[in-house]
Design a protein around this nucleic acid. Sequence first.
DNA 1: ATAGGCGCTGATAACGTTGTCGGCGTGAAC
DNA 2: GTTCACGCCGACAACGTTATCAGCGCCTAT
Lengths: 330, 330
Amino acid sequence: MNDVARHAGVGLKTVSRVVNGEPRVSPAMLKKVLTAIEELGFRPHEGARVLRRGRTACVGLVLGDVADPFYSVLTRAVERTARANGHLLFTASSEEDPEQERQLVQALCAGRVDGVIIVPTGGDHSYLAPDVAAGISVVFVDRPVQGIDADVVLSANVDGARQGVAHLIQQGHRRIGYLGDAEKIFTAVEREQGYRRALADAGLPYDPALVARGRADPEFVHAGLQRMLDGPEPATAVFTGNNRTTVAVLRELAARGDRRTALVGFDDFELADLLEPGVTVVAQDAAVLGRSAADLLFQRLGGDRSQAHTIEIPTRLIPRGSGEIPPATA
Amino acid sequence: MNDVARHAGVGLKTVSRVVNGEPRVSPAMLKKVLTAIEELGFRPHEGARVLRRGRTACVGLVLGDVADPFYSVLTRAVERTARANGHLLFTASSEEDPEQERQLVQALCAGRVDGVIIVPTGGDHSYLAPDVAAGISVVFVDRPVQGIDADVVLSANVDGARQGVAHLIQQGHRRIGYLGDAEKIFTAVEREQGYRRALADAGLPYDPALVARGRADPEFVHAGLQRMLDGPEPATAVFTGNNRTTVAVLRELAARGDRRTALVGFDDFELADLLEPGVTVVAQDAAVLGRSAADLLFQRLGGDRSQAHTIEIPTRLIPRGSGEIPPATA
DNA sequence: ATAGGCGCTGATAACGTTGTCGGCGTGAAC
DNA sequence: GTTCACGCCGACAACGTTATCAGCGCCTAT
């Protein structure tokens, strides 16, 4: 910038004014500076600007996995909102590891971003206190969090799951299996809760033998389904707690040649409607989740100091057929 | 940091040394500084560090749409590699708009990142020259670029498409339609080229009536398929130039109740194997594409000044059934 | 015993930008 | 004719860090 000032024969501050589009610059000066900038190929140094102004015009997003369709849609929504507010977006995947999440969040907070949106992996987030005190805004999405008071945006997990399982019960199923994420993941606990509530509402017993919790990999799903479907009192329907698990179950059912077991999944996914039968799901709106979280964040960045909000986004049951397979007449 | 130094009763530079883990610090000093940092809840200011050191430890990625599975897998691979090299990742979606891409890239270059990976939307990228001159490394992926000499990582588009169409021809198809992206998108041109080459190799005529180019939205696909399938000499098979188009075509075929038209798509997608029939695809390896691009970028950041490389990642035909539907015996 | 080397520390000057403030014209008002 | 106001400009300090360099002990080799 110094070079530009010299080259244009003006003061340093005048260049700064031009670069920032400040109003009180005479046309003559403006022209001189502009051509000097052009000739030297000058680009303002964002780092220095950040140092001086204290704001980065960047926000961060930390989630489990960008390649998970649910999160990639959420990411997209956050990015859109960020851009609409003149901010750039950092994205980072925690791979569901609390320690990695912590490192990423701290790296982001270290002067790189004005605010962060986090899909927390669980555990205590009180380590964020210094950063919040330092003026960084934090919003949690998809899962709530302990150890810190902050805005949270959630799906209606319990009720959504309850609704999905109720749909199966309504179709005549009495033995309904549940496969979902490990217990350390909040949404898994909530959705299993919804599963139990639906059973209780219908006066059906809760059978731990029909419940499997773990990562959505083929081995886990294979073992889980085997246990539920090949026992003496097999399940006639399965409720899955997330996207990844639903797909893994579909694959496993196909591998077993099983077309009789009914299925309802939490979270919609692409092509669910084109499979045969179409997969009935409890859809959560990832875009709305992301947008709401981002909106909250920018409200905070805009100076909103009100009490922490918790927003719950409703889910929607989309019947497509896979839930309507009647139980085998025993 | 000044506060920490005062609080610990040591010099400023000593605190700096501790923060940076430099070796020549006595244990006594180390302890004092560490407790002072703890007590004050001090976090080093990344912006200032950037200003001083000239490196940001961040890289940028600009692509069409993070929510497109192909790009989200690519993103994931880039992110992994970036983290392995101690860098954070900025992601931004250009929405296939050259002007928006340009703005994003420039925003990233303005002191925020050490290097950028770009899925170019086309057009001239010579505007990057000043940034490159300023030491920012640039790698292009998925599509090549004009106006600048830089590393490029591509899929084997022409040959992949040729192979996919050849598969249809081998199954007995003689009238094969093509649906793909608009001409401004490089990969679309390449893949259409592969389509034509396969036809030529088999001595089949090229019929413009069987070609449709445009965005993968339902209206476009509806119109395109209608034209190809409802004419006097209908196509018996369709080759689609990308992921999004393939899915849209599947949806349209389902809506038409059409189970006879064969289909091969460029680019694999989740659940392609579970549809009935399974969708035959020419798979490109998004993860390898992303990783290769990131590897190249970090080589450059590591000081590699050799001539620009162009890497082509081979594709793989995955037959799953949809390509093997025989043409209706006319 | 003394010089030289080495390990550790701290003062100081950058990095590139923006905010503050004072200065210098020019025009208007008394 | 003087004063005041106002629009425009530039010198200077400051943001929080790191690199450079000089200083200060202590140990070793002569």
